[in-house]
Design a binder for these strands. Structure first.
Lengths: 195, 195
DNA sequence: CAAGGCATGTAAATCGTTACATGATTTA
DNA sequence: TAAATCATGTAACGATTTACATGCCTTG
């Protein structure tokens, strides 16, 4: 279960609550991994039962109790074992945007272009975000933690996110141009009377 | 449910059996969508119950009966409605490779590089595949079907696959170089006595 | 003669999302 | 005063994977 390793991976960097783990996920891994709180809380309980983390309840006034989780040595072993399993296969990815575009030939040309422009806006925003907020965050974390090796990997993964968003925007721009130059063809579903 | 739309998307191009749909998935959408037969068969039954496809059993000698599914007009409407829903959000992606690399700072440097080299081989193979087999397949299909608009989209999506594999390989090469040039730092887990 | 392709499925287990439930504090 | 943040969870449902079950034909 990759969620388990995600949680262990974060906890390997210091104790955290489920709520904080959710925030960490949203702020750093959101473009390649995500999870809901309703999945995180039971997962942490199970990890505790299995002895991979320990939970310590900390009472608070005005707010619900916090449950702070720490990784155990068994947990760290398990994490390192997973990290060492050879990454010799392509990641199994599901991308609804690509799926939709793959079948989008059934739509009128103008509609396909409209859809691609929507996605282009989303990808441009993502590119900006990865270049600005995420970059700033990585540098802050690196300075705070002083953990050299992890910080290098965070920055490299951030750079991948940037390269990916760049590739996505460029491809969309190219694809839109290709369709715009494409003449209306017999057999397609384009309807110029409604465009 | 995206699997439903995947099946409708393929069936919109002509009748097929569950087994053939699985092959079609493996040959064309594998890099952004996949499914097992044990998920496809029940999904087709449900689609038939819902009136989005019709199934026709065709006896065969020596082989088990075939069940050939065709899309209905209701099914086509449903597909087009889905294709038209605005693609204004980023695809929610899970990428185990990125996840592992994000946490890989806990490993010795030499080990991280070893892992990245494994993945580089996989990505280089994928790049070749998309440039060769997949490209050939798209052209064959386009010629057979004579469906101009779908063929354009298939080729565009194939080009995206190529661009993605290209981005992946380049990033891995860059990341490996970065780590190789990185001096051994106090606090990391590198162990030169075993490198 | 073993392995793989053709062709269909069911059952069990796991993984993940959405909705529901609670309740104080802070911000707009 | 409405919405967001902090903080925890459960329940129901839906999606996906893995294992099991069958059996003939073709290829190596």
């Amino acid at each position: 279960m990759s969620l388990d390793y995600t949680l262990l991976g974060f906890l390997n960097n210091g104790p955290m609550t489920g709520y904080e783990l959710k925030k960490a996920l949203d702020e750093s891994t959101q473009f390649f991994w995500h999870a809901e709180l309703s999945q995180i809380y039971p997962a942490l309980k199970q990890l505790e039962k299995d002895g991979l983390v320990t939970g310590e309840t900390q009472p608070q006034d005005g707010k619900p109790d916090k449950k702070i989780y720490s990784i155990t040595s068994t947990g760290r072993e398990r994490l390192l074992a997973w990290l060492s399993e050879p990454m010799d296969e392509l990641p199994a990815i599901k991308n609804q945007v690509l799926l939709k575009l793959f079948f989008a030939g059934a739509l009128p040309k103008a509609e396909i272009i409209r859809q691609m422009r929507y996605q282009l806006l989303a990808q441009q925003a993502q590119l900006k975000r990865v270049q600005q907020e995420t970059s700033a965050k990585v540098h802050t974390l690196a300075a705070e933690d002083g953990l050299a090796q992890p910080a290098v990997m965070w920055e490299l993964v951030r750079q991948y996110g940037e390269a990916l968003a760049q590739t996505n925007t460029r491809w969309l721009e190219m694809a839109i141009k290709t369709l715009e130059l494409q003449p209306a063809i017999e057999g397609d579903h384009d309807d110029p009377t409604h465009g």
